[in-house]
């Protein structure tokens, strides 16, 4: 087991602050989707975090560790939950802006994601190993954001039919 840090410091505050700010903004933003869709859109981020962290940060590649120790901690779980508001905002603003170019929207969000990961790495949420670099995450974000866009269009008509108040 690798121990990077034993104190409650930057990385823990970054995750907690991110969660509080993200969920607060989600709560106060005007509702655009039915509850079921909001839950799924939130879970998209949590799932993507789990999926890629548990495939890239474990053997055979083991490219990084999350938070203070290489073991699985409650703060790791909270860090994955904090991806939830990010995916919700992705869908929310996609629905609100209705961008003429989805590719540009995906590109901008991927850059935002890389920026957030850079902050997280600086405060000690991520500890890269075996030569992993921040920019390796960029194609992963492109892939994830593209999948989210496909998911949005898959349910585009369904949301509109299930809730007359929806702006979709």
């Amino acid at each position: 087991m690798i121990v990077y840090d034993n104190r409650f410091n930057g990385n823990e505050w970054f995750i907690i602050a991110g969660l509080i700010v993200g969920i607060s903004i989600m709560y106060f933003l005007p509702k655009r989707f039915p509850k079921k869709f909001s839950i799924v859109f939130f879970m998209c981020g949590v799932f993507s975090g789990f999926f890629f962290d548990h495939s890239l940060s474990v053997e055979p590649v083991d490219y990084y560790d999350v938070n203070d120790k290489s073991t699985y901690q409650i703060m790791d779980f909270l860090s994955y939950i904090s991806y939830g508001p990010i995916s919700y905002f992705f869908f929310y603003f996609y629905d609100r802006i209705k961008p003429s170019s989805s590719l540009l929207y995906i590109l901008i969000w991927s850059l935002i994601n890389v920026g957030l990961e850079w902050c997280a790495e600086k405060v000690g949420v991520f500890h890269y190993k075996h030569g992993y670099q921040l920019y390796y995450s960029f194609p992963i974000y492109l892939l994830v954001n593209s999948c989210w866009t496909l998911l949005y269009y898959r349910y585009h008509g369904t949301v509109a039919n299930s809730n007359q108040d929806s702006v979709l």
Binding site: V40, M43, F50, L151
Partner: peptide, 17 residues
């Protein structure tokens, strides 16, 4: 289909945890 997408997400998260 949407319920099953949600189930796939949460089952993966629970199982991996």
């Amino acid at each position: 289909e949407l319920d099953m997408v949600f189930l796939y997400f949460v089952n993966t998260i629970f199982e991996l945890s």
